[in-house]
Design a protein around this nucleic acid. Structure first.
Lengths: 208, 208, 208, 208
DNA sequence: TATGAATGAGCTTTCATTCAT
DNA sequence: AATGAATGAAAGCTCATTCAT
């Protein structure tokens, strides 16, 4: 899996340091209870330096969001180009999230706890990102419907919700209980599980 | 559907007034940006009075949570006693949420945006409520597995996550876009859709 | 001399207390170096109470300005109606300032040091107040020119500047050296002096 | 008119650059709202460099003051030596200010708005400069009184205040409204006006 | 019950100043 | 000479909470 770390190291080292410290503190205390002082301390950096790199606490949070969405959309765009059945595309999405959780647990944590809900941070812009995210998956699914790869008697939008909702909840349960995903077998089992349940349902193929 | 309003009317009328005002303001501004003054204003009440009924802002929020969980667990317990296939139990859960969203959209909104995520409010107690909630559904599902009503090759916990996650995301999409659910046809379609996708998967029965 | 104290006592007592404390602190330290904490301490009042009554430090300053202008314009309007030669009108203006300095030295101090110059606080609105002030005196003077009470070979605007400038500087010298004006003889001498020099010039009547 | 530029060009060119930038920024935003960063930007210089030349923001302001007073006292001392009637000496003072305003409007602006009032910057030293300034004019006037060139029934101090106050207000009105004084006719009219009103008063010679 | 004035800890943000390069 | 990253004290403002009435 390609990593976007490349452009990260291009950014100021200190900036990265602060960004990562912020993610840690947001993970630990949540956005609102996190104080800039905590972030600076976590980064072993003076109070003012955080403001040297980021205009405000909100701007810092926005940078994290931007980072998240940038990576995600980049990967989604790659996946959309796959010349493979929808099942493999969806599998790649699940894999992306699980692997990112392994690499950057704090980033995923912040996404789950601070971005994905929390009306406080739901600006018009972030709502648009969500719409683009959902829309992107929706496109894959409705394409699959056209190719008769999956059922057509349910609107693609609902299939999308069920897929993303299930995926998010599985990830959430790991995030909130801070379960590491260091075991690649566990990762594969989860991967297959999510996908299989989504595709064949709780009844499974035996329903035939 | 029975309503728990009965015990609500038992509480002081003013108390209810304040509680509902709080839900509205939390819905509008989120917990952290909501000020006690806003809530008092919304309730047309002095803000000293809010403290007469609720010890603190947190206590006020806790009351809302308690209300939510009380209703939910009561209903779940009823559903658990159904002598019916798991599909009907799950359908009753979906129906509960959709109907509650129709009745008390703010309550569901606060649940989605403030309670279900947001590490700020994730106290040990609320985490326990989530565990009990998930555990309750898990029990229904593993019971069904024992009765061979559903597939047994996936751990009940994951089936539970996929079900609740899908359900939550469908509800979320309504909540966040503030879509009313006043049409009973739409409600039934949604109900069947969620259930059917969960049970038979994205491939549907045709996968046989 | 009528006093506007009446409407002041109508305002909240505490509000007045804070306003006066602010004037004292502004007089002592200047607007910028004055901290809200200083003002609260001076007023023997908690920090937050100042914000209960005044939205911000600027708003507090604006209130002082408003008070100043309100009193001044009220008096100027009265004076303008005098059916007397211009010399008596101008004398009344000088008397107003000298007496106000006796009554409310801090108010005059703040006017001299913070309002009358200091581009920081020169908003469009306060500039307009100055223009109205100068315009009001200008009107008296040009009226006197039409009645041939005073020379007509110099534009009324310049006569106004010379009068107000001289007056302000005399008052400034008292203010900046914190000279009290408790002696009514001194007050009268000053009053006559300013007026006589303005009217008959440095050469005096002997210039004839 | 001789210029003090000689010693200015002796100073570092960059130092001058920064000094002028500071005057511009002080003129635009006032001393307190002016940030060192603004001054550096205005001078197209890094803000570390400003500290290379000036110990602090206050020191920078002090340099501007010193420049102002140095020029003024030099000129006043020259004028004091004139073997001419007081009217010509006072005329030379007015001329100095008007011409300086033409040459260095920002310097005069800073004097009017930041130095001449504003208790914040009124240090003991600057107060002494004011006293020396006023004293210098006072000396000219009391000398004229001894020679019976002007009236002796008013204390020289008050005549001085009336003269300087009128002059300052006339200049202020130009400064605050940012009127250029590029027309030499206007300059002469102003010059004669100020002097004539001060000498013969609002009643003029016709008062005889 | 009901009010809203009063309190003050806590937080974000600014910006003069220092210093390694 | 020159740069600008780094520091941290200082100050404005918010708002949950208390309490006298």
């Amino acid at each position: 899996m390609t990593t976007d770390m490349d452009d990260k190291s291009a950014r100021g080292e200190r900036e990265q340091l602060i960004l990562r410290a912020a993610m840690k503190v947001f993970t630990r205390k949540g956005f609102h209870k996190a104080r800039m002082a905590d972030i600076a301390t976590e980064a072993n950096v003076s109070y003012g330096l955080a403001y040297h790199y980021f205009e405000s606490k909100d701007a810092l949070f926005d940078s994290i969001q931007a980072w998240w969405w940038e990576r995600l959309f980049k990967r989604l765009d790659e996946i959309a180009l796959f010349r493979k059945p929808v099942s493999e595309k969806l599998e790649a999405i699940v894999a992306y999230l699980l692997d990112l959780y392994h690499e950057e647990p704090e980033l995923v944590h912040v996404f789950i706890t601070e971005m994905s809900r929390s009306s406080q941070t739901l600006t018009v812009e972030s709502l648009n990102n969500f719409k683009r995210f959902i829309g992107s998956v929706d496109t894959m699914i409705s394409l699959a419907q056209k190719k008769k790869q999956i059922r057509t008697d349910v609107r693609s939008r609902y299939l999308t919700y069920m897929f993303l909702g299930g995926l998010e909840t599985v990830v959430s349960s790991m995030v909130l209980e801070r379960q590491p995903l260091d075991n690649s077998q566990a990762r594969d089992r989860l991967l297959k599980g999510v996908l299989d349940v989504f595709l064949t349902g709780a009844l499974g193929r035996t329903s035939a």
